[in-house]
């Protein structure tokens, strides 16, 4: 019993630390750093929303998919302008942006453009499905395919351009 409780309390403490850490990760960010971090958080919320539907944790909702697609397109277009080559942008408090961004600017912009284009395709698929009469199962499969293609760009970009600090 003793071990069981200590494992539980350890797990609880760990989750408190993890949650606090996540809340703190963006603290102290100002100006352009805060602006892009807030943007990324919104993308994450939309990705979670679509992900939860595809996992069956939430009911399938095409309107939410359309909203996600629209948010991805809008933010994707802004990404290059959110990473200006300034001291504040490079070294501002809490930034996780790596110098590799500015050392490989063309590749960074190309990735952002690819994300935006794939997001546009996601939005188009969601719009078309909204106007169609396919089964939820069919809709879900169609969304899954284009959603996966779109969000693989997120990891591709983080892999090279975001500080790895798990």
């Amino acid at each position: 019993m003793y071990t069981q409780y200590s494992v539980q309390s350890a797990a609880f403490l760990l989750s408190v630390v993890v949650i606090a850490g996540q809340a703190l990760a963006h603290t102290g960010a100002m100006g352009i750093v805060k602006e892009r971090m807030d943007g990324m958080s919104i993308l994450g919320d939309h990705a979670k929303s679509v992900g939860d539907m595809l996992k069956g944790k939430a009911s399938f909702d095409l309107v939410a998919v359309e909203e996600a697609g629209q948010a991805f397109v809008t933010h994707g277009e802004k990404i290059p302008s959110l990473f200006p080559d300034t001291e504040q942008s490079r070294e501002g408090t809490a930034t996780e942006a790596l110098p590799a961004i500015w050392d490989n600017w063309d590749e960074f912009v190309a990735l952002a453009e690819k994300f935006t284009n794939d997001s546009q395709a996601l939005l188009t698929v969601a719009n078309n499905l909204s106007n169609g009469t396919q089964s939820v199962d069919h809709q879900s499969r169609a969304v899954r395919s284009i959603f996966f293609k779109t969000v693989k760009n997120c990891s591709a970009c983080h892999e090279r351009f975001r500080l790895d600090q798990d």
Partner: peptide
């Protein structure tokens, strides 16, 4: 393991992103 997405909607970077991709 397929797309690098955490339950919170964040996407992995670093070595794990390579392992996944």
């Amino acid at each position: 393991l397929e797309i690098g997405m955490t339950p919170e909607g964040d996407f992995s970077g670093g070595h794990m992103a390579t392992v996944i991709e």
